[in-house]
Simulated assay, not measured.
Amino acid sequence: MANLTYFATHIPGRTIQVEGQSYRWLGGTNYLGIGEHPLFKEKLKQGIKLFPQNWGSSRKNNVQFLVWQDLENLFAAQYGHEAAMLCSSGFAAGQIALQFLLRQQPEATYSLAPFSHPAISTYLHAPYDGSRVDWIKAVLEEKPVLLGSDGIRTPWAELFDFSWISQLSPKQYLLVDESHRIGVQDIRLTSPAQIIQTASLSKAYGIPAGIILASKAMIEEIKKEAQWIGSSPPNLAFCYACLHAQEAYQEQQAILEENMEYFQSRLTNNAIIWAKGHPSFCLDNLTIIRRLEEHGFQMNQFSYPRWNDPAIARASVHATLKKADLMELSQLLQS
């Protein structure tokens, strides 16, 4: 399967223009299509009026903005944590949280689940070379102090069972990258271990920012880290829009859930790799990929996460798609 590149003039919503032709767009991780919602657009305009440029300064600058604190409090409350802290990106959030844990536990082993995102790894800490089942078994037997995992496997769509974390101890730390679940699925995790969840907010939430969710004590300590203090803050205008357009997010989440149920209920004898309750799916059948293109659908097709990985065809059922799109799509996916 080949890598494909398109040069777009605007962010795709329901459709994308490719070489002068309009296609229904299945690619990207813009799960909620929040940029299409009138309320989000209105609040973003207000945000740009209040904050017409990026604020590129230290996070400990003596000039601070309440919009960051208010948005952190909102995310902490929504996802069942005592506190939260914003970062410039999801990758920054993962790395800042991980480096903090490694410095706090310099002698500890960091055990990283298979297929975990580079945001929660280092060149010294590669993902486990084996199945997730074997990794969980090893973790429960060896009891490493630091653990890392994605909330869902990507780009191949696979849901993870986290019931095993009830067997962890209070002396252990579990770092979870929730970039592809936050805003789409419930990410709350319960365990005796200390839970730290990080995420990109540029996917479902559509803003250039990342988030770290943890206990109040841990967030206070991470905010003392030079990596966070010296990093750029997230864009104020987009944070303002996210904070004040929560009704838009709720509406888009309801549409997405309805679209997923409608689409997934019609999947029979299909050739896709998908995770029930999540909008993404993958294909490795070139005949069906060509069939979709011939009928006006386009999706992502590129190597990930390494440049020389085999190209993957990945699609998502966005909130912007219409029922007619989903019915046609489900019919075209029959193997």
Rank of each mutant, 00 (worst) to 15 (best):
L140A: 08
E142Y: 02
K143C: 13
P144A: 11
V145G: 01
L146A: 10
G148H: 06
S149G: 10
G151E: 01
T154L: 14
T154R: 15
T154K: 13
W156Q: 08
A157M: 12
E158R: 05
L159K: 10
F160V: 09
F160N: 08
D161W: 07
F162I: 09
S163H: 13
W164R: 01
W164L: 08
W164K: 03
I165L: 13
S166A: 15
S166M: 09
S166V: 13
L168G: 05
S169I: 03
P170G: 13
P170A: 13
K171N: 15
K171D: 15
Q172S: 10
Y173W: 15
L174I: 15
L175H: 11
L175T: 10
L175G: 04
E178M: 15
E178C: 14
S179H: 12
H180K: 01
H180N: 13
I182K: 05
G183D: 10
Q185H: 06
Q185D: 10
D186Q: 11
D186F: 05
I187Y: 04
I187P: 03
I187R: 04
L189I: 14
L189D: 06
T190C: 13
S191A: 14
P192L: 11
A193G: 12
I195P: 03
I195G: 04
Q197V: 02
T198W: 05
A199G: 07
A199C: 06
A199M: 04
S200M: 04
S200N: 05
L201H: 07
L201Y: 04
L201A: 03
K203A: 04
A204W: 00
Y205V: 04
Y205K: 06
I207W: 01
I207N: 00
G210W: 06
G210N: 01
I212R: 00
A214Q: 05
S215W: 08
S215V: 11
S215L: 10
K216R: 13
I219P: 05
I222T: 08
I222L: 00
K224S: 07
E225V: 01
E225F: 05
E225D: 15
A226F: 07
W228H: 10
W228Q: 00
I229F: 03
I229Y: 03
S232Y: 03
P234Q: 11
N235K: 10
L236E: 07
L236I: 08
A237K: 06
C239M: 15
Y240F: 15
A241I: 01
C242D: 05
L243G: 01
L243V: 05
L243W: 09
H244R: 09
Q246H: 11
E247P: 00
E247A: 14
